[in-house]
């Protein structure tokens, strides 16, 4: 039983990481109906820049407690990823807003490759170890183990979701976002500055990406230039699972996918007599993705919308 609870906790933590990243995908998709392939790379950039900033800071004799040092690193990486997000939208997506849908998707792949390769140029291909700065004391929970950092990640995913929901529902920018996502041309007639709203979406999404990247790095103790791809893909799956464009759906989808993966990797082997097992862990995400898209393209919490051409 404690093993099962541990698997649930594992799934919850991984799922929260997916959820944090999925929020970024879902925000952009909700407004532009565009898969921002490069979001996984923004997550990677956030982690890598934070590591570099922290190592420079601690190397130059700044003596701060661990968590503050991480915050200082984030203060460096968040503006940079925000700028990256802004630039990506401006350069690669905005000129193609009226183009066939294939076009921005291809530039998105291009941006993703470019960011990844630039990261390889800067940091080389080897993994960087993430300094041990955040508290990670273990707690016992019904025979299973959970650390402070893991609790932080789960809480953070929920808090960020709550914050975004409040922003979308209550603020002026949020109202503008909703308007743009419903109908761009009408929104613009109503005096909404569409370009500003879209840019802000990318900026906020990228900042969240950086935070998510740091959480990934801290939790696993390392970061590397190619880390963004797989985790980005899974987060995207989570967003689709929950109903893309829906903030609460992204979190629900993330948690569900995390638990499917953990429990699947843990129990599928014994159930199928070793035919399927943990070696198919990565397949679960893709299978879920395909099944959801085929049978319920609107996801768990999404509304059924007419297909846009």
């Amino acid at each position: 039983m404690d093993i099962f609870i541990q698997q649930l906790i594992n799934g919850l933590v991984v799922g929260s990481i997916y959820a944090l990243i999925a929020l970024g995908y879902t925000m952009v998709y909700g407004i532009l109906q565009l898969i921002n392939f490069a979001h996984g790379e923004i997550v990677m950039m956030g982690a890598m820049i934070t590591i570099s900033a922290v190592s420079i800071l601690s190397g130059s004799g700044v003596n701060l407690p661990g968590p503050l040092l991480v915050v200082a690193g984030l203060l460096v990486s968040i503006p940079i990823t925000m700028l990256l997000g802004f630039t990506i939208e401006r350069v690669a997506y905005r000129p193609l807003r009226k183009a066939p849908r294939l076009a921005p998707l291809i530039t998105a792949i291009g941006i993703s490759i470019v960011l990844q390769q630039v990261a390889v140029l800067i940091w080389k291909n080897n993994p960087r170890s993430f300094p041990d700065l955040l508290p990670h004391a273990s707690h016992d929970f019904m025979g299973a183990v959970i650390t402070d950092l893991q609790i932080l990640i789960v809480v953070l995913a929920l808090v960020v979701m709550g914050g975004l929901l409040i922003m979308v529902e209550k603020t002026k920018l949020g109202r503008a976002m909703r308007a743009v996502s419903m109908n761009q041309s009408v929104a613009s007639l109503m005096g909404v500055n569409i370009n500003y709203v879209i840019s802000m979406t990318f900026v906020i999404g990228s900042a969240l990406g950086a935070v998510a990247g740091v959480m990934v790095g801290a939790n696993y103790g390392l970061a590397y230039p190619t880390m963004g791809f797989m985790i980005g893909l899974k987060a995207f799956t989570a967003a689709v699972l929950g109903g893309i464009g829906n903030l609460a759906g992204a979190v629900a989808g993330g948690l569900l996918l995390g638990i499917i993966e953990s429990v699947g990797a843990g129990y599928l082997g014994p159930i199928t007599g070793g035919v399927l097992g943990s070696h198919y862990q990565d397949i679960f995400a893709f299978m879920v993705l395909i099944l959801v898209l085929v049978f319920r393209p609107s996801g768990l919490l999404g509304e059924r919308v007419a297909e846009r051409a």
């Binding site: 093993i3 429990v263 990797a265 943990s278 070696h279 862990q281």
Partner: peptide
Amino acid sequence: GREFTTNQATDFMAILTTIKG
């Protein structure tokens, strides 16, 4: 126990939990 991961993975909690048992 015989478990598997990939050369891109960072999360081993699921398979390690199985092994722990």
